[in-house]
Amino acid sequence: MTRRRTVLWTLLGPPLCGVLVACLVVAAWFVVGRPDLAEGETWFQIEFVGEAHYTGAPDQPIFFLAIGNDERASGPGGQRADSIHIIGVNPALGAATVIGIPRDTAVPIPGSGTDKINAALQYGGLDLQVQTVSDLVGVDIQYALNTNFDGFIAMVDEMGGVDVNVPARMLDSDAGSDFQPGVQRLTGDQALRFTRDRKSFPSGDVARSENQGLFLISALSTLRAQLTGSTGVLTLIGVLSRHAEIKGMSVVDLYRLGRMGLFIDPANVRNVVIPTGGGSGSNLAPGPGAAELFADFADDGVLQTH
């Protein structure tokens, strides 16, 4: 009997002791509480910070035409495209290109022979202007926006102005410009003067077109600083819709494209003007290298070799 008890204790004793110790530890945990943490120690590992964004924006390159026409409340005007910029956006690369086409560039206008490119708007409205630029550059332009003097001024003012780094002294009595170089916030009226000035520069219309592209990129920078999220983009759409003719875009498209555009870092946006040659002053023609520039641009909306 004693021998059997000894064997039993030998077999069952250690496991029973283990269970007893475990029970005591658990009991102590509940009575005393869990042990204090050492300083610097994190009790558990859940620590996470992250963001998720989805806008439904296209993931393929898109091409967009921005027109500023010369229609105004007083003065000659009409509806000629004074400012012509085709913008390619490559969402995958997070990059874009702004190509300015000087308004005096002579090009074939469908149905109207060869004429200054800005006349297409007068001959056939925004549709013909889009077709003319599409034919010239060799891309399918899906979207376009056209505004006049008053619309441009109102848009800039309703945005609260645009911060522009004025590249050089600008003084042009015809355009009304009088700017010192450096960063400054331009009102709508000042922005119009800045983008119309061509007499402050030896290269005239080419420099003006480049400054117009600079203004577009500056507007992107300003908007990125001001608009965080979708609500701001909706407000911007309201501004654009009130002051511009918009082609190919519903307000939903505008939202998606606006969000896509605001994701682009302005540092990744190139600003170029097409090479012009032959003719001069107010009678330009696409110069050598223009075809190569267009080909580089047309494949994905950004420039690789220019």
Partner: peptide, 23 residues
């Protein structure tokens, strides 16, 4: 819902985390 912008943080509650150098 056709779009969203979510910024999220999950952090241990302050009472269960200590900071500073270990002694």
């Amino acid at each position: 819902v056709t779009g969203y912008d979510v910024t999220l943080s999950r952090t241990p509650t302050a009472a269960t985390t200590t900071t500073g150098a270990a002694e």
